[in-house]
Design a binder for these strands. Structure first.
Lengths: 170, 170
DNA sequence: CACTATAAGTCAGCCTTGTTGACATTCCAA
DNA sequence: TTGGAATGTCAACAAGGCTGACTTATAGTG
């Protein structure tokens, strides 16, 4: 079932980094790091009555202004009902604006209001600060490896979504 | 509030990897990769009536057999009550065994049963398969960088817990 | 035009997993 | 020996996922 234990014995190159133990450490690193990754925004959101789901919605609306509900659904990988609940509160609280599509009036295009952008900034700053500290501590080469592995770990569709955002962003 | 935009202008070495845009890409990579990371075990668990919390408990009980409830609490970073509910079902279903401590009878020491170990194996194999594919695709140097950045991203306490597990494991 | 497909929103109800508060048991030290 | 601290358990509640069924509005097509 698992070929990891034999990893060190094959071919010329060292495959010791593929042993089950190394993989397990990778798994645990992912677990602990993700906790750190979400800790700061979670703290901020906890004070308001928002959660991680609101953060995710705000992040991607900010990243791709005018995106449709369906688009967001695919990126976030949740159900319509789940997203709608979050979106409804964000719109009611005046953080997100929903505009009827010009060419296709069935679509709703989502934008952050000034208030929404303000919260996005607060959350992003907190999360970026931690990411920046980690990147700086690890150095550019480690960061490059970090991104390579993460990208390889994604589902193919997510990889496409990620690549698309990268293009549009930089 | 954010010094990332100026990152490229300081000192001699290139700090372009610390720009806000690079950090944002790192954030999104974390988000998408974590989805992939949990996808396979989630699928398996969905068929039974277990969730991610059960997986985490099983993983760490397997990793540190005989651990106490309190210990597990610190590692998982959830409340006692939340863990207890999960633990109760696992014990009721005969996957986990809870033994009263010898020296301190307040403590309960947790062990996987054969049945529990079997499920742990199934879940681990699925998760390791993806991790292995990602590691292999990325190569040893990228993996090293991956781990360096993740470690730098953890809260200090989690970093300690992670290091402790690493010692005991390999 | 009539029909079908698509985009979005809604209602009801479920499950997991997080939370806080109250409580029982056990240990240890004053 | 008694009172505080530590360990674990139970009860009740909220957030945020999920499915399924349904409505409304609009697009596109035969």
């Amino acid at each position: 079932m698992s070929d990891g234990a034999r990893a060190g014995t094959s071919s010329g190159e060292s495959l010791l980094y593929l042993t089950d133990e190394q993989l397990r450490q990778g798994i645990e690193a992912m677990f602990f790091a993700y906790r750190g990754f979400t800790a700061d925004p979670d703290r901020i959101l906890g004070d308001m009555s928002y959660g991680r789901a609101h953060h995710r919605a705000i992040h991607f609306i900010n990243r791709a202004p005018g995106t449709t509900v369906n688009n967001l659904l695919n990126i976030l990988g949740v159900t319509k009902q789940s997203l709608n609940r979050v979106l409804r509160t964000l719109i009611a609280d005046g953080l997100v604006e929903s505009r009827v599509g010009k060419t296709d009036k069935r679509e709703r295009h989502l934008h952050l209001t000034d208030k929404g952008r303000a919260l996005e900034g607060t959350l992003s700053d907190a999360q970026r600060a931690r990411m920046r500290a980690a990147f700086r501590e690890a150095g550019p080469e480690a960061v490059s490896g970090f991104r390579t592995v993460l990208e390889a770990m994604m589902d193919p569709e997510m990889r496409r979504a990620y690549a698309k955002l990268r293009e549009s962003g930089a």
